[in-house]
């Protein structure tokens, strides 16, 4: 059912021309994905998806729309070539999954490497009820820390760039631009 919603949302995103509606629908898409992640018991991933996909990404897209415009121009070239490329890529990807073990197959190699240790020992070793959480936050803690550092650095870089641009615009005496949204008092 949720997957049906996902497909319907994706089709609507492709079909619509109003970019504002597309941003709204991508927010819905993220929420549906988060629901699917919760159904798959990956609570942290769902959390990140909801916060980043439905929260931050929607904000960034809307900020971009404010700077550019919210109406998509009709494409000048035929959509056939991109469609062909996408179809071929999808076909190759599907063909590539034929070698993979079936979903949920207990004999798959991924279930014999470190997963038994996670499953059997994580309640005593880490003490977190959710297994995905313990893997993300403890067993792969350094990975998560590295990701956080990367995201933080990117955020600092973007803030530095936006800050310089905002100051210059203010020096020119233009009208109140309020690019960084939310810092406006009141």
């Amino acid at each position: 059912m949720l997957l049906t919603f996902l497909v319907a949302t994706a089709l609507a995103v492709v079909r619509l021309r109003s970019l504002f509606a597309v941003v709204m629908l991508s927010g819905i898409y993220s929420l549906v994905t988060a629901g699917i992640f919760i159904a798959l018991d990956a609570v942290d991933v769902a959390f990140t998806e909801a916060a980043v996909g439905a929260g931050i990404a929607t904000m960034l897209m809307l900020g971009t729309l404010r700077l550019t415009g919210h109406r998509q121009v009709a494409p000048r070239h035929s959509p056939l070539l991109p469609l062909l490329v996408v179809t071929i890529t999808g076909g190759v990807l599907l063909w590539g999954t034929r070698d993979m073990p079936r979903f949920g197959d207990p004999a798959a190699p991924v279930h014999h490497h470190v997963a038994p240790r996670y499953i059997e020992d994580s309640p005593t070793e880490v003490g977190v009820p959710n297994m995905v959480t313990s893997v993300l936050a403890s067993y792969r803690g350094f990975d998560t820390l590295g990701e956080t550092v990367v995201v933080f650095t990117a955020g600092v870089g973007v803030l530095a760039l936006l800050g310089i641009g905002g100051r210059r615009r203010r020096d020119e005496g233009a009208e109140d631009t309020d690019d960084d949204g939310g810092t406006r008092p009141g």
């Binding site: 929607t58 904000m59 949204g181």
Partner: peptide, 12 residues
């Protein structure tokens, strides 16, 4: 999220 979206729409 909804409050932020409404703020942005107001801005647009």
């Amino acid at each position: 999220g909804v409050i932020a979206v409404l703020k942005f729409v107001e801005g647009i």
